[in-house]
Design a protein around this nucleic acid. Sequence first.
DNA 1: TGGTTCATTGACCGGATGGTTAGGGATTTA
DNA 2: TAAATCCCTAACCATCCGGTCAATGAACCA
Lengths: 222, 222
Amino acid sequence: MAAANKMNSAEQGAGSSELRAPESRDEILKAAIKLFANRGFHETSMAEVARAANVSKALIFWHFKTKEDLFMAVLNRLLEPYVIDFAEEAGALDEIAQIMQLVELYLMFVRDNASSIRFFVAQLMRGELASDALTGPVMRLYDGYRGLLVDLIGRAQAKALCLKDFPAAAVARMLLSMLNGTLIEMLFAETDHADVASAIAMIRQWLFGGRAGVAKDAPPGL
Amino acid sequence: MAAANKMNSAEQGAGSSELRAPESRDEILKAAIKLFANRGFHETSMAEVARAANVSKALIFWHFKTKEDLFMAVLNRLLEPYVIDFAEEAGALDEIAQIMQLVELYLMFVRDNASSIRFFVAQLMRGELASDALTGPVMRLYDGYRGLLVDLIGRAQAKALCLKDFPAAAVARMLLSMLNGTLIEMLFAETDHADVASAIAMIRQWLFGGRAGVAKDAPPGL
DNA sequence: TGGTTCATTGACCGGATGGTTAGGGATTTA
DNA sequence: TAAATCCCTAACCATCCGGTCAATGAACCA
């Protein structure tokens, strides 16, 4: 059985807008990222991905053995920019400046990766899939970030630079809650830049009171 | 509306383990709530709902015309407890106490409705379905709550009871960010009660500095 | 030139899903 | 008691989905 007749000929004509080489894999990944991000895993069909990537469904299964394989590849691709090392960023700055830089880094990171973060959060929310392959790296990063905060806040408290009414760990947790709250406001309501800037100002005021000590007052990028 | 009549006679006598009267609708709703909540809309099949509710799939389609109808019914059922009037709660208390009571109310509400809130957030995240029927009521409630906060904070600032370095609206927004951040920590990491209590303490400290003025120091329920 | 591998495709398959239908048993109504 | 109504079900259907397969053109290798 199987017709096998071909039918094509059609578009030949040498170059023009034809599909290229094994960068089709990349095309598929990009399409999958977009679709998974704003429709979720279960709601995205391989046929849709194929259509969006301008390839046949079978080709997707040639590149990635299963749908979950594709999903994992998407995960890894999205995880790449998440490896930014927060640590290196701040050199000889005092604790206050370092903390504020971490805060700004967090917010800028969220702003720049809004869509993939939305994706991760959506995935996190339900145990949908791969909760380990997902939870693992993200949580490691998150814990690392919190660790840095606890450390820095502890040192700032020791130098009496920063509010001391609560243990460093609690302050760090609260700071992260503030950041996460601002984050979800950025993601769902569309907070404008002014609001984010004012959030940063309020965080600084909360942590350090009237003290200065920060290099730049209004972060350039935000 | 829902019949409510009858339900009589019921199971006794012959029936053995037989199904009852038009409270089957309720059984279906309860099952659907549970399934939709922790598996989402698309990942929950009508057959599963039927199995979980111990009825036939066809009966579901008799009670609710389509799957989306069932989903809407679930939404409305879940929305019911959300009508709590925050306003009535606080009577003759001063602004500080009222604000702190709102804060506690928010956190307790989240704690008590964790599963349905998780459901709403998951639904909100993607525009999956009914984004109006969903967004509408929840956002109205949320805005109402924020309005109350802005008002109270404004009055507290006027009386110099509360931090005045920022406009009331900004303070309210930040407070909500803190609450939402604490919320997602409660929902996803399992923050224990001590952490929530310390979060409340830190919020009070942030808003009112050393001032007292609050009736109870450690909220009983939390 | 013929063969091997790479990259790609249309057609196909079994299973699950949302939804329908025809009917049946019990209760109410006339 | 006959008709109508309500509540409920098994069986069915069309569609879509993840995944497979045989075939094939192009590039590289002998």
